[in-house]
Design a protein around this nucleic acid. Sequence first.
DNA 1: CGGGGTTGCGCAACCGATATTTCAAAGATT
DNA 2: AATCTTTGAAATATCGGTTGCGCAACCCCG
Lengths: 351, 351
Amino acid sequence: MSETTTGAGNAPRVRARLVDVAELSGVTKSVVSRVLNNDPTLRARPETRERVLEAARELGYRPHAGARALSVARTGTFAFLIPDLTNSVYAVILRGAIRRARELGYVVLIAEDASHAPAGAEEYSELVDAGRVDGLLVASARPESPLVAALVEHPDSVAHVFVNREVPGSRRNVTVDIRGASRLAVEYLASFGHERIGIISGPPDLQPAVARTEGFKSKMADLGLAGDLVAAGDFDEQGGFEAAHELLSRAPEVTALYVSTFGQAVGVLAAAREAGRVVPDDLSVICYDDVPVANYLNPALTTVSMPLNALGVAAVDALMEQVGGAPAASVAIEDHFAVVPRKSVAAPPAS
Amino acid sequence: MSETTTGAGNAPRVRARLVDVAELSGVTKSVVSRVLNNDPTLRARPETRERVLEAARELGYRPHAGARALSVARTGTFAFLIPDLTNSVYAVILRGAIRRARELGYVVLIAEDASHAPAGAEEYSELVDAGRVDGLLVASARPESPLVAALVEHPDSVAHVFVNREVPGSRRNVTVDIRGASRLAVEYLASFGHERIGIISGPPDLQPAVARTEGFKSKMADLGLAGDLVAAGDFDEQGGFEAAHELLSRAPEVTALYVSTFGQAVGVLAAAREAGRVVPDDLSVICYDDVPVANYLNPALTTVSMPLNALGVAAVDALMEQVGGAPAASVAIEDHFAVVPRKSVAAPPAS
DNA sequence: CGGGGTTGCGCAACCGATATTTCAAAGATT
DNA sequence: AATCTTTGAAATATCGGTTGCGCAACCCCG
């Protein structure tokens, strides 16, 4: 609308600078800057403010990010270190983070710290050293990465939060309640009458894996059931397949499985087929984390959904507080998880 | 290594600036800058160069990105506009792009332009106007987004490429050979003896959808087969389910389906089950794009894999050329696709 | 009518780099 | 010995903002 009034419309505009706005409104750039930033120390006539605002609007003025960063020593940028982009769990967290960041005037750039591309940590310090970012969102699942170690040792060197990970010794963990969700999953299975419940866990050196196992065992204990049916595998299809294969042959009496990730669950389903067990008649399966495709597996997979989007939001909020100078504090998102019932859980076989 | 020689080791370092390096090496900052940037117009004694280099190393000097951006009018940043972060297709492209960008000294920031968050386009122009980015990677699937229209009309206003999308009227499309891959899929099905082959296509206003259909029809024609079994649905599970449901009831004689996306294929499998058709005995299914989980569906899904990583790499390379001043040119990745045979394709039923 | 206190805004220094210009000292030339 | 070139590096302007301070003009008051 206002663009057309300039007559320039959608012509290949050149960037308008502060001085351009100043010239057009007949004041100096310092006044323009203060008006646009609502500097309370500035005394200006309302009509002057209005002229400035109007000129800025007319020119489509936007402060140059680099110049501003230079001045105020703030970039308006966060970096997100992610272990695996193709894992939709992280994608959802990232989405929540990006949106929240945008609401706060921040943008986020991505680095991947996959096991096959271990450059992530180094890249991070490059970003920090180059003054490119104001803070780090670290979702790396790799234990004892040099980056994590450095951050734990010098927590104040740069604003940061660990996302979906409880790093020992850090007061900057933003997490969901994995244990609570795991307890809920077990409770759900038990409500169908299952007693011999097993867990497909993850690599024991990964904290999220042990949290699931802890939740599992604690709820089993509360129910007076034996929590000894544990098998560990990688957090992917292959890992789930292998762990389930092993557990099903070691303890064929198991009637229900709590699985740590969706990827694993897909593998578990394959292993169950291979073992000649039909889900859910001969074996019930529930997994941590809900993804859309779960609804279309055969059978449709019962899951417990986690507030991953909220996790991303909370992570950015926590980071913003640090940037704003507030003391660091871990955040745990306690609820907002729920089992989404589908077709992979039923009562145990009569036998 | 060199860090420990400073004695500061891993202490909470403060950023070293150009002047710090200058002071330490006993020259002025202009000399330091030119030495570090290999300015050919600078004449300096080798020993002076060495002193500067050593000082920079010792201080762990890294130029401040904002300051440099201000000076050279380049940010070292690209932005990637992505329609759906949770879609692993885009994740793989993004991964390739990020890695390549990093090799070239660039970082990439993400914006999501989902249908449920249509702010993406606006965010983009904010990024450009604020001088935050040197170029745009546009993978938005949304047809006629205002951003796309603006870029097509003023192609030189900002460096950009369209990724995995053939935008009419643009010379900046970086694509894979969807038609060729589609032809390959059809050929593969035909090699099993299928003649009544159908396609589950996508929204007709999305260019990638029509490309698949075109490839399908052209190969069917080449084979002397009728290419009339077409059903369209959204590119997700739901869309695949609905389209397949419709096609299977409309044309029950179909013996094989070429499906446009993995998400759709999952829905197609569900629809087949619902229709009482067992895959692959009563119905063969192959889909465009390979993802790890395809191997664990029931049955394991035969797919045609695409060079998505290479696509991301090529997109960044094309963008870099534009930034470097080269004339824009579309790029098509012609081969590197292949069918990965699994369990969802077999010979048509004898009947 | 002159002095003190606002009101409203301009001046100029910085932020940390890059790039062009200037200049002192050393060596070559006559 | 006096001038002309080179060599090597210092000065300085600039990029586009932010921010502390200064300073007129205006007001009110005695």
